[in-house]
Design a protein around this nucleic acid. Structure first.
Lengths: 241, 241
DNA sequence: GCAAAAGTGTTAATCTTACACCCATGT
DNA sequence: ACATGGGTGTAAGATTAACACTTTTGC
């Protein structure tokens, strides 16, 4: 066993390329979407042992001929039909007993998708269901932990990066945008302060149209200005509330 | 190949536990210490092929009977003699071609150590050398990228968490503390503003002693107050400059 | 006595927070 | 006409940024 009892001066040690160190490498995918003023998560009900019938993130083994990114993008496309989606790595989970019976390391990435664009037929085929974050079912293994960690990273990201671009539909209202942030931070945000801060970032284009699905008066629709977006973020204060 | 051509409705797919997906899992260790007003990194010169003579982070394969954390702590102890050190995972690198000839995924963790406490004999045995961040040599594979990513995460952490506790000697001066932050952020920090902010966190104990190694007048030594430290961080503003 | 680093306070600017009323519309 | 959510402005408080001089001491 290398390095185990006393220092081995050789670097790398002689048994560096031992075959019996190989293990399973998986990737699990945290698919987040925003709908009805709630941040939602796509979970899958397993229809095979082990853990048949229980809820789980969807994952896959990483193939020898694909990168980690390709593996998780493959999962995302197979379950939502979407490609070219923002995804970001969170952590890698490799506890000795995280999976019973065999040793498996899992790299987690989360994806932010526009719910109105994904293929709902695929979700059905996979026995998948969207859950609000506050009513998640029990999940197998360490999947709840993976989700908690990812949400923490997402909250940090949301402070600096807007997030709305990835999660909101192309056209959206400011109240909608605000409720997205409320559901990410799990707290109320003053509407006036939110407006002020978002508009001061100068990343939105106001449209003529109104969306009246949420009120009689209707709220003006906006789009992200792709040019200003990105440019105007590094410098400014961000969206911390 | 699973999920490759068209969706497979079964979840998990039938070939979920195929053996030929196994691969090498390694961990690479970014060992950071602070000395002479510089943040430094411990690198190793390989004395075996491949890449003999080139500089590299130190890593190891993760054994089947140890967790990811245990593996990187094993490396850290073997090369510095230190245990119970702060370490944090950054990212996992799993590109198809990151290592020539065989497929290997590597989980990176960084460690913050007190340079005055580590075992320098071990470092010599391992052909290791401390480098200032601004004079790093060329490194093998994607190790430079790993370091860049880790430093970015470290900077974020430093804004909220002080970092000094892990990197400074038990007794230290405020100018020393400030220069640590200057070397992390790679910019000058106003001494008056730094003092004000650090002292307002109320995590330090001022000692009677002075350290005169850096000036004739001498600077008062401080220690971290372990009780207040930790408690006083969540609430307050942190150390962003 | 002088060079070199340590120590100390104030002010202006910016950002954050809290807060209350009118508007437009569908029913 | 009224209920509902959309839209707007201001003032107090907190935080950050900029800035210059005195102190101590080894040489």
């Amino acid at each position: 066993m290398i390095f185990k009892k006393k220092p081995i001066v050789a670097f790398p040690p002689k048994d560096f390329y031992r075959l019996d160190h190989k293990m399973y490498v998986a990737t699990d995918c945290i698919i987040l979407g925003y709908d009805s003023n709630n941040l939602k998560l796509l979970l899958f009900q397993r229809n095979l042992e082990p853990f048949k019938g229980e809820w789980s993130l969807i994952g896959t083994f990483v193939h020898l001929d694909e990168s980690l990114e390709e593996a998780s993008e493959r999962v995302l496309e197979q379950t939502t039909g979407l490609t070219n989606i923002f995804m970001e790595q969170t952590f890698t989970y490799g506890g000795l007993k995280r999976d019973p019976g065999y040793r498996c390391v899992s790299i987690v990435r989360y994806a932010l998708i526009r719910l109105d664009e994904h293929d709902t037929k695929l979700a059905k085929e996979y026995h998948a269901k969207w859950f609000s974050l506050d009513e998640l079912p029990n999940m197998i293994l360490d999947h709840q932990q993976m989700i908690n960690d990812a949400l923490e990273i997402l909250r940090e990201k949301a402070k600096k990066q807007s997030i709305g671009f990835e999660l909101l539909p192309k056209k959206f209202t400011l109240p909608q945008f605000r409720r997205l942030y409320e559901s990410i931070y799990q707290k109320e945000i003053d509407p006036r302060n939110f407006r002020k801060k978002v508009l001061s970032l100068d990343i939105l284009t106001k449209l003529e149209e109104k969306d009246k699905s949420n009120s009689k008066k209707g709220a003006f629709l906006y789009t992200f200005n792709a040019l200003k977006y990105g440019k105007n973020f590094a410098s400014k204060a961000g969206l911390d509330f």
